[in-house]
């Protein structure tokens, strides 16, 4: 079942195969959650949006003929996120720091602390970037979309996406200099 494409799994789910949905859910569980978490104000907001995105996918359950499932769910996530921000006039700020989640047993305590600091720094700097830049960065890093897919999704040209990404990386590099 692991070799089956997302689109095929979703098509099967549309016909009532719950197991197919579980598989596709497992594939996008973390990336979708992190995309929303990095884009939202709080964890509660991210979780609410996360549930809303999946509810939308479940309720629609109509196989699409073109495009990828990945682009489809991140498009829904982005649209819902924009709707919410517009509604509530929210500003993207840093997510809460969760000190308990970062674990790597192979690192020394000093190394872990360093990584932790750097990770947290990166998360904070990421949300401090202009929204257009952080969005492109997250769609590429978290969703794994290509520049073309991102360009289509946010309705801009490929060069614009490249430019935004370049600015984001340059800025993060500068801000994270001590960690690199």
């Amino acid at each position: 079942m692991n070799e089956i494409s997302d689109e095929e799994l979703y098509r099967r789910y549309c016909k009532g195969d719950t197991q197919a949905f579980e598989l596709v859910y497992e594939r996008y569980r973390q990336s979708l959650y992190l995309f929303l978490l990095r884009s939202c104000n709080t964890r509660a907001d991210a979780e609410e949006l996360y549930q809303e995105v999946w509810s939308r996918i479940i309720a629609t359950a109509k196989p699409f003929k073109q495009g990828s499932f990945k682009a489809y769910i991140f498009q829904i996530a982005r649209n819902l996120k924009i709707d919410r921000f517009r509604r509530e006039h929210l500003r993207i700020v840093a997510d809460e720091v969760d000190m308990t989640t970062v674990q790597d047993p192979g690192k020394t305590p000093d190394g872990l602390l360093h990584d932790l600091d750097c990770s947290e720094m990166l998360k904070r700097h990421l949300v401090s970037l202009p929204h257009e830049q952080s969005e492109v960065f997250l769609l590429k890093e978290e969703a794994g979309l290509t520049l073309e897919q991102i360009a289509t999704m946010i309705s801009v040209g490929r060069e614009t996406v490249k430019s935004r990404l370049r600015y984001a990386l340059r800025q993060l590099r500068k801000l994270m200099e001590e960690c690199l």
Partner: peptide
Amino acid sequence: LYQTTRQELPSAELDRQILALA
């Protein structure tokens, strides 16, 4: 470095609710 930040997961309760809905 970004990959090291990818640790968070949705809660088990959230997973359960979504799968039940599906």
